[in-house]
Design a protein around this nucleic acid. Structure first.
Lengths: 247, 247
DNA sequence: CACCGTCTTTCTCAAACTGAGTACTTCTAT
DNA sequence: ATAGAAGTACTCAGTTTGAGAAAGACGGTG
C-alpha cells in the first residue's frame, strides 16, 4: 500500500480512549521550609481532595507548553515571573486504573522550582490552592497516585541540587550565600556547615558571580551585611556539591 | 452531581484520538564500542526507514510492562536474560505532529542497558533489526523524532555511569575490572587511566565484590590472568566515579 | 624457548579537596 | 553597653585525585 493512501484509510476511532494530562510538582521555599503547591479539587473525580495541580494537554499543544500553561494558571505568575521558574519533565505515570474515569489517563509529571511567590489563586477547577509544607503532606491523602508523583519530584530535586545550579531558582535574582544555604538545607532537610558551604560555593566556577553589593542590613538576629551574588552561567556544577554522606 | 452518577455520564469518545507508544533505546557494548538496537520498519509510517524498536501500549498494560515486552520481542531474550538487563523510563515525547498518523501519538521512551546479546530477530513489524555502532547512527536519518530520543538516551547513560553501578549491566555476571573500564570508555568515549580506575572501583563500597577466581587465561595480547568480580549491592556510587573534567 | 610487548595490579608522590573547628568582625535586639 | 548571631576568612589533619613508575604474569612470535 502506498503511504499516502494508507494514511487516508486510517481510522483513529479504532483505538481505545486515552487521555494525557500534565501534573506539576511545584516546589518553593517558605520560612526555610520546602513547600509544594497543592489544590483542593473542585470537580470529580476526587472532588474535595487535595491533589497536584494539572490538567489535560490540549489538542495541538506541546507537553512543555501545557505544563507552563498550568503553572501559570495555578500560580497566577506573569510571563516575567515564569522566566525565573525552572520547569523540567519529571516522569510519566500510566498504570491502568490510576484514574477512575472510563478512559485511560496518562500523566506526564513536571517538576518546577520557584522563588517565593504570592499565595496561589484557586482557578475554576479548584476550590482552593495553597503552599503546603512538605512535612505536612506526609499525613495527607492525595488524589490519584499523586503521593507517588510528589515523592518522585522531591527525590529528583534533592539529586538535582548536587550537580546543577538550580538552587538559585529558589531565590531572587540577587541573593546571599546564606540564602542559598537555606535552600540546600530545606531541600535536603539537614544543617550544613556554613563556613565550608561558603568556601565550596565560591570555588565552583560560574556557579555564582559577585554583584559588588551587599544587603541593606544584617540578619534578623544580628550579624554583618552579607555580600550579594547573582546566578552564574554554569549548567552543571563541577565539582558537584555533594550531600553529606548518605552512606 | 454524585461522583458515581457522573462516572456513568462520562463519554470517552468526546476526547480527541490519542495513542501512546513505548520506544526503546537499547544500548550494549560490542567490540569495545557502544551500540544501539535499531530496526528497519516493515510497515508505514516510515516504512523501510530505521527506527528505535517500540510499539503501542496495550489496553490494560502498564508502561513498564509494555517496555519489557517490546524489549523481549525485539531481542528474543529469554526471561532469565531479561533479569540481567536494566530498564528505566527515559522521557516522554509528545510534540504535536511528531507522528504523521491522524491521531496524536505520545512516545514514552525507555532506556535499556544490556550485556552482549545475540543478533536481534526481525519480528513482524520489522524487515530487519541490528546492533548499530553509535558512531554510525550520526549519519543515519531515523524515523519520527528518534534521533532526539536516541540522544537523550545516550546522554542519560553517560550520566548514569557516574553515580550508579549500572555499568555492570553491560557485562556478564562475572567480570574483570578491565572489562568494566571498557564499558566506561565506550560510553564516555574516552580513555581512562587504568591504575586509577582500578583503585577507584575497589574503593567504592559495595560496587563490586570479589569472587576469589580469575580468568582462565590472560588477555588476547598478553598480560596476567585478571581477578573476577561480581556486582555488589550498591544502588548508588559513593563517592561517584566522575568523568574526566568536562570543565 | 627466549624475548618483547601487553596487561593487571600495586605503589609513590604531590596537588587538590573535605570536614571540623577557630577566629575576627559587623550587626541586631535588649 | 552588651550578648548573641551571622558572614567570612583561616587552619589543620585526613582523604581523594591525577599522573606516573614498577613489578610480575602471560601470549604471540621468530
Amino acid at each position: 500500500m502506498e503511504e499516502a493512501q494508507w494514511l487516508k484509510s486510517y481510522e483513529p476511532r479504532d483505538y481505545p480512549a486515552v487521555g494525557v494530562t500534565v501534573d506539576l510538582v511545584i516546589l518553593t521555599i517558605r520560612d526555610k521550609e520546602l513547600h509544594v503547591l497543592l489544590i483542593e479539587r473542585g470537580q470529580p473525580p476526587f472532588e474535595g481532595e487535595w491533589a497536584l495541580p494539572g490538567g489535560f494537554v490540549q489538542e495541538n499543544e506541546d507537553l512543555h507548553d501545557a505544563a507552563a500553561r498550568e503553572l501559570q494558571e495555578e500560580t497566577g505568575l506573569t510571563q516575567s515571573d515564569l522566566d525565573r521558574v525552572h520547569l523540567e519533565q519529571l516522569q510519566t505515570f500510566g498504570k491502568p486504573g490510576r484514574d477512575p474515569r472510563p478512559l485511560r489517563v496518562y500523566s506526564v509529571a513536571y517538576l518546577a522550582f520557584a522563588p517565593r511567590l504570592p499565595e496561589p489563586v484557586a482557578d475554576t477547577d479548584a476550590k482552593n490552592a495553597a503552599w503546603i509544607p512538605l512535612a505536612a503532606t506526609g499525613e495527607m491523602k492525595l488524589a490519584f497516585d499523586h503521593e507517588e508523583i510528589l515523592s518522585a519530584g522531591v527525590e529528583r530535586a534533592r539529586d538535582k541540587l548536587e550537580y546543577s545550579p538550580l538552587a538559585t531558582k529558589f531565590v531572587g535574582p540577587e541573593f546571599t550565600i546564606s540564602e542559598l544555604r537555606t535552600v540546600y538545607e530545606a531541600v535536603w532537610g539537614e544543617q550544613l556547615h556554613a563556613a565550608n558551604f561558603h568556601r565550596k560555593v565560591l570555588s565552583v566556577r560560574h556557579f555564582v558571580e559577585e554583584t559588588g553589593r551587599t544587603t541593606e542590613r544584617g540578619g534578623e538576629r544580628g550579624g554583618p551585611r552579607a555580600r550579594l551574588y547573582r546566578r552564574g552561567d554554569a549548567t552543571q556544577l563541577h565539582p558537584a556539591l555533594l550531600r553529606p554522606t548518605a552512606e
